[in-house]
């Protein structure tokens, strides 16, 4: 197990390094940041542009810029923004908790709904409740998240005035973004749980558990669920990347002050240091979550633990 973990950690470091190269290179393909800085500034000479480029450091070769960035990363410093010269670290420190809160809340919400619902659907396979769950999940899968977000705003904020439309005003602001992301994840997860559960319920050890006289609740939530957790965990790990992608869009719709909004604005402004910082942090987050999933396998399944 330790050997396995060391290998995984080595791999994680490599993945993060690769991400930094890719990000640093690809943001520079998006266009010249000076063009954004100078919009509406009237008469600009080529000399002005060159001066600004030199000031931003984007006139140097890519390798030099990348090594600068990497050097900063190794010191825990993501640099200063092109606009306003504030610290990227500070911006991320502000935005990250908001995003984490939203991401884990959505994930938790989706699991809290999809596990009991998926189990119920599997146990009552073919019944009307199973059919309803499957239909709803199909509908949920077909919704784009931004559309669902806007529908929520329309219904709960504009028509019913129950919730604030956007921004960050305590718990009530969390409801709609978390519900949007959570419900869409739920649509996927409920199918996953149902499928995994159907397979587990057909195994002989479930029959054995029932033949011991265990209450159905114990059979399902102790004996069966623990065996379903491996596919569920795997999928949740993979899903986390999608979730972060969804967060970027949903944050923008709800004007949620997280990493998504930060990234969106930075991309619009071609603010390289911010884009690099955000992507690096999010990529690291995804890698860490998957590492945690690998560790969790071992906790859930003794067959993995001893390998």
């Amino acid at each position: 197990m330790t050997g396995f973990l060391l290998r995984r950690i080595g791999l994680a470091v490599f993945v993060i390094l690769a991400v930094t190269v890719l990000v640093a290179y690809s943001v520079r393909l998006s266009g010249d940041p000076t063009a954004m800085l100078l919009t509406g500034s009237g008469n600009i000479t080529q000399a002005d542009i060159d001066r600004i480029r030199a000031a931003l450091g984007v006139d140097r070769p890519f390798v030099a810029q990348y090594l600068d960035f990497l050097g900063g990363v190794l010191h825990g410093d993501l640099g200063l923004t092109f606009f306003g010269k504030t610290s990227v670290n500070a911006l991320i420190a502000q935005a990250l908790p908001a995003t984490l809160l939203l991401a884990f809340l959505s994930l938790g919400l989706s699991l809290l709904i999809s596990i009991p619902l998926g189990i119920h659907a599997a146990v009552h396979r073919g019944s009307w409740s199973d059919q309803t769950v499957r239909l709803l999940s199909l509908v949920g899968l077909s919704f784009p998240n931004f559309w669902l977000a806007m529908m929520f705003v329309l219904i709960f904020a504009i028509t019913l005035h129950w919730l604030p439309t956007s921004g960050f005003f305590g718990a009530s602001s969390l409801v709609m973004p978390a519900a949007t992301l959570g419900l869409i994840l739920c649509a996927i997860n409920v199918r996953l749980v149902r499928g995994a559960m159907l397979e587990t319920l057909s195994t002989q050890y479930i029959l054995v558990a029932r033949s011991k006289g265990l209450a159905e609740r114990l059979v399902l939530y102790k004996h069966a669920l623990r065996n379903c957790l491996i596919p569920i965990l795997t999928y949740v790990g993979l899903q986390f990347g999608d979730l972060i992608g969804g967060v970027v869009i949903v944050e923008k719709v709800f004007n949620w002050p997280g990493m998504g909004s930060l990234a969106f604005d930075a991309i619009s402004a071609r603010d390289y240091p911010v884009i690099q910082g955000v992507v690096l942090v999010l990529a690291t987050l995804i890698v860490l979550v998957n590492l945690a999933v690998d560790i969790a396998y071992g906790l859930v399944d003794p067959r993995v633990r001893l390998r």
């Binding site: 195994t203 002989q204 050890y205 029959l207 054995v208 558990a209 004996h223 623990r226 065996n227 859930v300 399944d301 003794p302 067959r303």
Partner: peptide, 9 residues
């Protein structure tokens, strides 16, 4: 081989 639950001792 399949009548014992693999995840419990």
């Amino acid at each position: 081989m399949t009548s014992l639950n693999p995840v419990f001792s």
